[in-house]
């Protein structure tokens, strides 16, 4: 098919992409459900703004940057894989994994800062003080970023496996599919960033 044309028959969309889009729609609803629940509570409790001050916008911004860059590298990997430049594709995939690792490292530094301030999953000190509502913000913070981090790990694992596979010349089309999953992880973060780090 020539470049820059849409698939007019749905059957021209390859199975893998079709399945990936379905999976992404499903995942978006799972994350979206969580985000909707958070938003509903956020509107209900304006005092959560005071809690969000404890999150570090700088770390969040760096992480957004890292994820955007890793999204960029994985899409380049897909580009190279299509041109059959396996080595360069692998390099870009490796960079993506490095990006994911960097994201997780920054995230864990953030977590350790917050935990040392006593802001944990359940924040027992707050609950004891009768500030249960505030502790709920932190429960949401950890469940949302935690679930996202799990997806980052899953995405990295997938990319790693496929990086190995294309080294043997197999499953080159899967680079794109792993990339789509990685973009989905990126999307979720793009939405989590203003929700948790900017809206204060």
């Amino acid at each position: 098919m020539s470049n820059n044309t849409k698939a007019l028959d749905i059957r021209q969309v390859p199975q893998g992409r079709l399945a990936m889009w379905t999976l992404i729609a499903g995942e978006l609803i799972i994350f979206g459900g969580l985000i909707a629940v958070y938003l509903l509570n956020r509107i209900r409790y304006p005092e959560w703004g005071a809690e969000a001050v404890h999150t570090s916008t700088m770390f969040g911004a760096i992480n957004t940057c890292v994820l955007l860059l890793s999204s960029f590298t994985i899409v380049l990997a897909h580009n190279e894989a299509n041109k059959n430049n396996i080595k360069r594709a692998q390099l870009y995939m490796f960079l993506t994994i490095v990006g994911g690792l960097a994201f997780l490292c920054i995230k864990s530094i953030e977590y350790s800062r917050e935990i040392s301030e006593g802001l944990t999953f359940t924040s027992p000190a707050m609950v004891a003080k009768g500030e249960g509502v505030k502790s709920l913000f932190w429960s949401f913070y950890y469940i949302m970023t935690g679930l996202h981090a799990l997806h980052v790990i899953a995405g990295m694992t997938t990319i790693f496996i496929i990086m190995m596979q294309i080294g043997k010349g197999k499953n080159i089309h899967r680079v794109e599919l792993a990339g789509m999953y990685w973009h989905m992880v990126d999307l979720v973060w793009i939405f989590l960033f203003p929700l948790l780090y900017i809206a204060k």
Partner: peptide
């Protein structure tokens, strides 16, 4: 109970 207290605290905000 503690539960009722914390609800009340939440309430005042």
């Amino acid at each position: 109970t503690a539960k009722a207290d914390s609800t009340k605290a939440a309430d005042k905000k």
